[in-house]
Computed example of a mutant assay.
Amino acid sequence: MKTKSILYSFICLSVLASCTSKPIQNSHQSPQEKNLTKMVWIKGGEFAMGTSDPSFADAQPIHRVKVNGFWMDEHEVTNAEFERFVKATGYQTVAERTLDPKDFPGVDPKALVPGSAVFTPPDHAVPLDQPLAWWTYVAGANWQHPFGPESQNKANEPVVHVSYTDAEAYAKWAGKRLPTEAEWEYAARAGQTGQKYYWGNELKPGGKWVANIFQGEFPQKNSLEDGFKGIAPVKSFPPNAFGLYDMDGNVWEWCSDFYRPDYYAQSPSVNPKGPADSYDPDEPGTVKRVQRGGSFLCSDQYCIRYRAGSRGKGEINSGSNNLGFRCVSDKAP
């Protein structure tokens, strides 16, 4: 199943005229003083990366990879944590920045207002190859206002509407970095291999949902079997064997690797960091980074990329209300 960058069709409305962000101010606070999320030590090791599932041609071939040990946030970065970063630095996310009409020839200047893509379910069944039937560009939607100007985020939910640019800026301020794709998958597998899902081979082990994904008839009818219509607060579901929460579902997570569908055929076997540049045959010329884990919109009908080994991708200055991140570090917090 092909999954394009969620926001690419809104590119003339959502990408900054300039990708230069406000400078990150130096902070002498320690991670503890910044009240950042707890980190979990992930002991290094070797694993089989990728999948043989024919649905995911860009995650093949399966290949052996060794990664060094690293620290990883136990859950996705929350709105409360991101707010501390913004208050400390004055940072403005891509979705909040003014757009320059010169960079969008042919577009009505009145339409060039800051915003982001918001999942807006239709009231009837629609073809599943037409994502614009359930995505809407909403003026004023951003990390503080996830559904538009009148909405308010919740402190203990993952921050969303963050582009790769935004996530990288936060990680730098926090003294951390974004995970490589190999680190992310190694952590998600938590010592297991050959399983259909990161949590096992059953979608509902013991009859219980163990990840925040979509239930019902996508995209028009959410049966809410797992108790959540959209994003769930962090740590709403059990952790994996490494003590990490929500590695599957809830929100997509940015990785540091550039995206190329052919990278696995040439990936180094030790600490791979991704290709030197980006290439997506679906959208040539668009710079993309890898995303992992799926989101609350993934289901067995659409976007099945909560399955083990699968990959996602996204244009680096685009965001949406199902896209967030977590950080890693080579040093103890």
Rank of each mutant, 00 (worst) to 15 (best):
L132V: 11
S5L: 06
Y137C: 01
C303R: 08
T180N: 00
P122V: 01
T165W: 10
P23H: 09
F242G: 07
H63D: 05
Q130C: 08
S256T: 15
G230N: 09
P284T: 00
F70K: 02
V210L: 12
K331H: 13
Y279Q: 02
K2P: 15
E150C: 07
P54Q: 10
L203W: 11
F218M: 01
L128W: 01
T89C: 06
K273V: 13
G230R: 13
Q32N: 07
Q291S: 11
P121A: 07
A171R: 04
E253P: 06
A117F: 00
W254S: 04
D123K: 13
E225W: 08
D257M: 13
I24D: 06
N201F: 14
A48Y: 14
V15E: 14
L128T: 08
Y245S: 07
G44I: 08
S295V: 06
A80H: 08
G324E: 00
Y164R: 00
K102P: 07
E33K: 12
V86G: 08
T78I: 04
R311T: 13
F218Y: 03
E157A: 09
D248S: 13
M49I: 03
G274I: 04
E185P: 02
N222V: 09
Q32M: 06
V138A: 08
N201L: 14
E46I: 12
Y245C: 05
